[in-house]
C-alpha cells in the first residue's frame, strides 16, 4: 500500500516565547515492509533544524527557534510504501540487544494487577499465541478512548479504568509482556483507519519472542499492525518514543492542535 501522511501540529502560546527548542521524532525509517518514498518537515517561521538519531536509533530532528514567537506550526508530509509480514518485523534498525526492553520505566512499572492478568491470559509463557491473546484481551476489556491520553498516566493506573487510549493499552501490554519475560517496546507512528475522527498520533507495541524475533501487537484494535501502519519511533515507553519533546523559554500557557491525516494515495 502507498500511504500519504499529513501531520500538522500547531502550538499557540498565550504570551510570546523567547526561545523554543524541540526534538522531533517524526521521521519514519525504512525496513523490510516500509519504504519511505518522500518525507519532509516544515515549520512556518524562521528556524534551524538538525537531523540526528537518538539512543534507540530513531531518526530525530532538532528544531531551534529564536523568539519572540507566539505560535508555530510544524507540518510533516510524506509518502510511505508499506507491506506486511503477518506482524513479524524484519530489517529494522536494532541498536540494542532485545533484553534491554525488559526494563521498566515510571510509566511502565511492574504492577500486580497487570501481572495477574498476564498470567491468567497467557498461561505463564510468553509465546506468540499468548501475546496475541493478551493484545486481544486488552482490546475486549477496554472501550476505546480517542481523546488525548492523560500526561504521565502509568500503565498500572490506566489498567483500573474501563476505557483506554491506544497509548495506555500499549503500555499495559508492555508491562504484561515484560512480566512474562518477553522484551517489549512502545512504537509511535501512524495508522490508516476507517473512523474519520481519528486524529491523534497512534501507538502500539512490539514484543520479542525467542526464536521468532520482534512482533507487532496493537491492543487498541486487537490485531497485529499491517500495511495500514507506518512505524516511526520505538522506546521503553510512550514518552521515550514521543513525536515531540520540547522546551520553551517564557511564562505562558500553550494550546496544541494536532491534525493527522493518513490516506491511501493513488
Amino acid at each position: 500500500m502507498r500511504l500519504a501522511i499529513d501531520h500538522r501540529t500547531l502550538y499557540r502560546f498565550s504570551a510570546p516565547q523567547r526561545r523554543l527548542v524541540q526534538m522531533l521524532r517524526m521521521t519514519p525509517q525504512n525496513h523490510h515492509d516500509q519504504t519511505v518514498a518522500s518525507w519532509r518537515i516544515d515549520v512556518d517561521c524562521d528556524a534551524t533544524m538538525r537531523d540526528a538519531h537518538d539512543g534507540f536509533g530513531n531518526a530525530t530532528t532538532m528544531l531551534y527557534v529564536a523568539g519572540p514567537i507566539d505560535a508555530i506550526e510544524i507540518s510533516v508530509t510524506g509518502e510511505v510504501v508499506t507491506s506486511h509480514s503477518s506482524g513479524e518485523l524484519h530489517g529494522t534498525n536494532e541498536v540494542f540487544p532485545a533484553a534491554l526492553f525488559l526494563r521498566a520505566t515510571a510509566a511502565t512499572r511492574a504492577d500486580p494487577a497487570i501481572a495477574r492478568f498476564a498470567e491468567d491470559t497467557a498461561g505463564g509463557r510468553a509465546t506468540t499465541e499468548a501475546l496475541h491473546r493478551i493484545a486481544q484481551s486488552l482490546h475486549d476489556r477496554f472501550a476505546p478512548d480517542t481523546s488525548r491520553p492523560k500526561p504521565g498516566l502509568a500503565a498500572g493506573d490506566a489498567f483500573a479504568y474501563d476505557t483506554g487510549t491506544a497509548r495506555d493499552l500499549a503500555q499495559i501490554f508492555l508491562v504484561a509482556a515484560r512480566h512474562l519475560g518477553a522484551p517489549a517496546r512502545y512504537v509511535s507512528g501512524y495508522r490508516l483507519s476507517d473512523d474519520a475522527g481519528l486524529s491523534t498520533p497512534h501507538g502500539w507495541a512490539e514484543a520479542f519472542v525467542a526464536g521468532v524475533g520482534w512482533l507487532g501487537f496493537d491492543p487498541s484494535v486487537g490485531r497485529s499492525p499491517d500495511d495500514n501502519y507506518v512505524r516511526v519511533a520505538v522506546a521503553l515507553d510512550s514518552t521515550g518514543a514521543a513525536a515531540v519533546a520540547g522546551a520553551r523559554l517564557g511564562e505562558a500557557d500553550e494550546v496544541i492542535e494536532v491534525d493527522i491525516g493518513v490516506s491511501e494515495s493513488q
Partner: peptide, 11 residues
C-alpha cells in the same frame, strides 16, 4: 541492560 544506570538515551 537491566541497570537503570545504563542510559540507552545516550548510547
Amino acid at each position: 541492560l537491566g541497570n537503570d544506570q545504563f542510559r540507552p538515551e545516550i548510547a
